[in-house]
Nucleic acid binder design. Sequence first.
DNA 1: TCCCTCTCTGCAATCGCTTGCATGCGGTAC
DNA 2: GTACCGCATGCAAGCGATTGCAGAGAGGGA
Lengths: 325, 325
Amino acid sequence: MKRATIYSIALACGVSASTVSRAFSRPHVVNADLRERIHAKARELGYQPNKAARGLVTGRTGMIGLLVPDITNPFFPPLVRAIQRAAAEVDSSVLLVDAEESPAAEPQLARRLAGQVDGLLIASPRSSTAIKEAVEGLPSVIINRRIRGAAAVICDNTRALQRAGRHLEELGHRRVALIRGPSASWAAQQRADAIHAWAAKSKTKLVDLGPYAASFDGGAGAAGALLGTKCTAVFAFDDLMACGVLAGLAEAGKTVPKDFSLIGCDDVLLARTVTPQLTTVAAPVRRLGEAAVELLQQALAGEPPQEIRLDGQLVLRASTGPASG
Amino acid sequence: MKRATIYSIALACGVSASTVSRAFSRPHVVNADLRERIHAKARELGYQPNKAARGLVTGRTGMIGLLVPDITNPFFPPLVRAIQRAAAEVDSSVLLVDAEESPAAEPQLARRLAGQVDGLLIASPRSSTAIKEAVEGLPSVIINRRIRGAAAVICDNTRALQRAGRHLEELGHRRVALIRGPSASWAAQQRADAIHAWAAKSKTKLVDLGPYAASFDGGAGAAGALLGTKCTAVFAFDDLMACGVLAGLAEAGKTVPKDFSLIGCDDVLLARTVTPQLTTVAAPVRRLGEAAVELLQQALAGEPPQEIRLDGQLVLRASTGPASG
DNA sequence: TCCCTCTCTGCAATCGCTTGCATGCGGTAC
DNA sequence: GTACCGCATGCAAGCGATTGCAGAGAGGGA
């Protein structure tokens, strides 16, 4: 049998289709008894409103697009979950698109998405200008990057990283390396700045290495460069790279935290599955997702773009310890 | 300005809306010159067909739903990517829904999805019957579980696991443990069966442990049980658990592969980021996704449900070695 | 010249829902 | 009793696309 429509329900209840429609979209305007009868019949017939039809007249699809640069990167799945949960809260579904690690593909994907969603959430875009003009006119929120004139929710790790620096200092480290992420990454820049700021006003010497690819192999490669620096502690751009560093160090016969203290960033699953577990800066992923959806709702309502910043939080685990020698 | 429609294009080109529509949906029936003019104008006006309107008349939304039990589990992101890529190939978008590890939520989510997609892809559902009746009538494909009468694409690790067994045997292992996954998991059952089948016809003694939760902590917990068994090698249900076992073993002062050889399953990112890298059975994720989409297209076309099985493949890495003692 | 065919285009109905407006009703105020 | 008000409901016009059918015009055959 075909799917139930407001007409079949109307017929079955002896009312007009508009009344059925109103029974769902503006329940308070229809008589309570009747409304109840309509709802009951709808349930009985397994009625599901046709979103396409509704979207056609209201101009709202009830979907929000989510563009992530690389769903395979462990940072994103929890974010996707958070966003989806928050979206469900406002009766929206999430259309996920993965750029498959190709920055160049992002604007095009964003544009394609634009046709079928009410608004767009763009996580960690690599290129700001291309993205910006691609979504021109479409309510959207950028996650983890700042773009002039666009709503954004960003995770600010400045304070947490500086706390991490002090933590290292207290452990007696005096030479610390920074393994930079990709130069096109806004987050990499932000984190590097924070660490430099800390180093500048501490008595610690900072050795700036990189940029390296933000991958396990990138980190493993960086481990070699680290060996010659006489550093006793390392900031890695993120946890994935930190794991690479860990492996590279192990290969070279060095152990963490005995020979090197190691600090990651993001607190992804990996940070807890490696041995030793990583000291890292956790991102408030859940709130990040909620804030993004909230900002998008505001944008949808025509309010001017805002920016929300959320602080990361240092979590101490087993990869940091007293400076050796 | 408002979005361009077929009408604005029609007006600008001095033709009727139907012609514009046809210029896109059945290009060969309209005069080549005219078609070109229409396309050019459409490009100029930034025309994007309104999917809702099209969906209303064709009954197709151009979207396929993808229900995953836990997007946070590293097995799924690459699968999501593969599916999405395959979906794009057939001009469809993916509506992702994450059950957040709650099996009970699956049927309800599937039902909600049902209203707005052409078909449904359900990855590793925990409960088969509930799911099945939830999607009654909606074309759908199950991934990694067999359900009577439903189309399915499953990853068959039987042969690869048996090869893994022989690999262990060749390394001199004579007592091997199996750390089982959750009893409700179809994959856990399938893998356990395969390993038992191998053990039965080899000269190896198999010790069956579990079931344990399919998580890092589950694996870590299982490591304790392992210690008393006098086994020299272990099959873990999946890589995530294997990482847990690795960590638990390390805590107990045991090292891999010196004291224990360890084999995981799935070949997720984690398998390569731990030290030592895990010997594991790789799932053909990419083909899995393609096959799922392909099967869904068949279901959409009204063809009877099929089943596709794809073989996993043993990949040898550093977590297996000669039996100790 | 007439008729038939074939190609291309337009007309108008339709998909399922929302919503502004008109209508009918009972109740209240005068 | 009349006038008015407000509530609940129905009518009908769209939203933007697709598509069956019909008509216009060009070309070919007799």
